[in-house]
Amino acid sequence: MVEEQFRWDEESYRAIAANDVAWQDASYVLRHGRPRVRRHIGALLHIAAHAPNGSIVGVNLIEESDDQ
């Protein structure tokens, strides 16, 4: 199994902060959140799971290449 890679840029951090979510919680949801809902449609990936504080966080990503 290939481990997924996530790239963050300044716009990523701004978008996360604009939604009152800590970037650490978004990162946790992507890598460790359980149970989680995962939906992959074309180049879009949607993941939602519980953050460490118990809140449910949804993260939307655009795939640049396979597993990235």
Rank of each mutant, 00 (worst) to 15 (best):
G33H: 01
D67C: 07
R38G: 14
D67H: 10
L45S: 03
L61T: 12
S55Q: 15
G58A: 15
E64A: 08
V59R: 00
V57H: 00
S65N: 06
G42V: 05
I41A: 10
A48N: 06
G58I: 08
P35Q: 04
H32V: 15
D67Y: 05
I62F: 09
P52A: 10
H46T: 04
R38C: 15
P52I: 08
I41R: 09
E63L: 09
H32I: 12
A43C: 10
A43R: 13
V37G: 08
E63S: 09
H46W: 05
G58H: 08
N53M: 08
I62N: 06
V37I: 12
A43Y: 10
R36M: 13
V37C: 10
A49M: 03
E64M: 11
I56S: 10
L61C: 15
G33A: 05
H40I: 11
L44Q: 10
I47Y: 01
V37P: 03
R39T: 13
H32K: 15
G42K: 03
I41T: 11
H32W: 14
G54W: 04
H50K: 10
R36Y: 13
V57E: 00
A51T: 07
G42C: 04
L61F: 07
H40A: 08
N60I: 14
H50A: 09
E63P: 06
E63C: 11
G33Q: 03
L45E: 03
R38D: 13
R39D: 14
V37Y: 11
D67G: 08
V59M: 02
R38W: 14
N53S: 11
D66A: 11
I62G: 03
D66Y: 03
D66V: 04
G42Q: 05
A49F: 01
R34Y: 08
A49S: 09
I47T: 02
E64V: 06
L44H: 13
P35R: 02
A51C: 07
G58S: 12
A48H: 04
A43P: 09
L61R: 04
G33K: 01
A48Y: 06
I56A: 12
G54N: 04
H32G: 11
E64C: 04
A43I: 12
E64Y: 03
L61M: 14
A48W: 05
N53H: 08
G42E: 04
G33V: 02
L45T: 02
D67E: 07
H46A: 06
A49D: 01
R34K: 15
R34W: 09
H40P: 10
V57Q: 01
V37W: 09
R36I: 10
A49G: 03
R38H: 13
L45K: 01
E63G: 08
G33W: 00
E63W: 04
V37F: 11
A51N: 05
I47H: 02
A49E: 02
I47G: 01
G42D: 03
V59T: 01
V37R: 13
V57N: 01
D67R: 12
I47P: 00
H46Q: 06
G58N: 10
H32E: 15
L44Y: 09
E64D: 07
S55Y: 11
I56N: 09
E63Q: 09
H46V: 08
V37A: 12
N60R: 15
H40W: 07
I62P: 02
I56V: 14
R38M: 15
R38P: 06
V37T: 10
A49C: 08
H50Y: 10
